[in-house]
């Protein structure tokens, strides 16, 4: 932390040597802004190396995230389909609506702990957090805008050039700066204060039922949803009926036959808030999800070999449900730092 302050100061000092007097005046006094590394998490994948995290950059990213200016007709923001009260998933809808009412094809995923993700989207097609927002901004069934036009709109806005100046030292708006700012916001969205986290850190205890659920989870789910991030970020076919007749999933990225019908193992953090479930939002309740793994698995060619019907008893199902509820992080969904 101190080192980062020192580096920031040095950067500030160096920039004073430059010729751009205006930008020197605009350099804020307090630029360093900490990344919240939970003590029980591994080191993050994204470390802001080329995009130093600052308060101004984070706040610009937050403003952009919630601003419909990023969409073609200024009707939709990132936050429209990624709502904080749902841990940044959509509001209980299987397929989100884009500009002109276009209907999506996969369930809008929850957002948290993205700095730990090696790849993004259900098929893992996007390899970097800085690049990720280009997909929804430019998709014809989502925000349907071009990056060039976003730059034009932000440049002609009365407020944004000043915010870009504060965050990046010049009021020029570029697609790279837009993406850097969004990455600073999204990369700092850390969910690590659920009851589960406090249990792991020895700050809170589980009920007997929650403990039973955790034990069942560790026996039957952990190999894919490994702790503490609750995903191994692999791609698997989880035995959904008719799974890949309409969506080939990972195959669309790799063109490997063996990847047909595979989707990213989602994190289960805040899972009670992120319904409906699966890549196509076909299951609306946690009960239905548990039933799927318990007795509704369909074995097709690429179904993950580690999946066999788990045949939980009804009290085991209740225990698993109770455990999954402990993954809800109320601090995260009410944190004003992340809010619109």
């Amino acid at each position: 932390m101190r080192a980062s302050i020192a580096i920031t100061l040095i950067v500030v000092l160096f920039s004073r040597c430059g010729k751009e007097e205006e930008s020197v005046l605009a350099v804020p006094t307090e630029q360093a802004f900490g990344f919240n590394q939970p003590e029980h998490f591994p080191p993050p994948h994204y470390t802001f190396t080329n995009n130093p995290l600052t308060k101004q950059g984070f706040e610009l990213g937050r403003k952009l995230f919630f601003d419909p200016i990023l969409s073609l007709d200024n009707s939709l923001s990132c936050g429209t389909c990624h709502s904080q009260v749902h841990a940044f998933a959509d509001h209980g809808t299987a397929f989100s609506l884009g500009v002109n009412g276009a209907v999506g094809t996969r369930n809008s995923p929850a957002i948290s702990n993205m700095a730990w993700y090696p790849a993004f989207m259900w098929d893992g097609g996007i390899n970097h957090i800085e690049i990720m927002p280009v997909a929804p901004i430019t998709s014809p069934i989502e925000m349907k805008e071009t990056m060039t036009n976003v730059v034009v709109k932000l440049l002609s806005d009365p407020v944004y050039p000043g915010l870009f100046n504060a965050a990046f030292g010049s009021s020029e708006v570029t697609d790279q700066k837009i993406l850097f700012a969004l990455a600073q916001y999204m990369g700092n969205l850390v969910s690590s204060d659920s009851k589960y986290d406090r249990y792991i850190l020895g700050k809170e205890s589980y009920t007997a039922q929650e403990t039973e659920g955790l034990n069942l989870f560790r026996t039957h789910c952990e190999s894919c949803h490994n702790e503490p991030l609750t995903s191994d970020f692999s791609y698997r076919n989880n035995g959904l009926a008719g799974g890949y007749e309409t969506d080939f999933g990972r195959y669309l990225i790799t063109q490997e036959e063996s990847d047909k019908g595979k989707f990213k193992v989602p994190s289960l953090r805040n899972v009670a808030l992120t319904y409906p479930y699966m890549h196509d939002g076909r299951l609306f309740t946690l009960t239905a999800v548990i039933d799927h793994y318990s007795e509704n698995l369909v074995t097709v060619g690429n179904t993950d070999p580690s999946l066999t019907p788990m045949n939980f008893t009804s009290s085991q199902k209740e225990a698993l449900d109770a455990f999954l509820q402990t993954l809800t992080d109320y601090t995260y969904i009410s944190n004003p730092l992340y809010a619109e």
């Binding site: 989207m121 996007i126 280009v134 997909a135 998709s139 990056m147 060039t148 730059v151 669309l252």
Partner: peptide
């Protein structure tokens, strides 16, 4: 820059 439209968004 991605705004040069020489970039795939769906599969980086």
């Amino acid at each position: 820059a991605v705004s040069n439209n020489m970039f795939w968004t769906w599969s980086t």
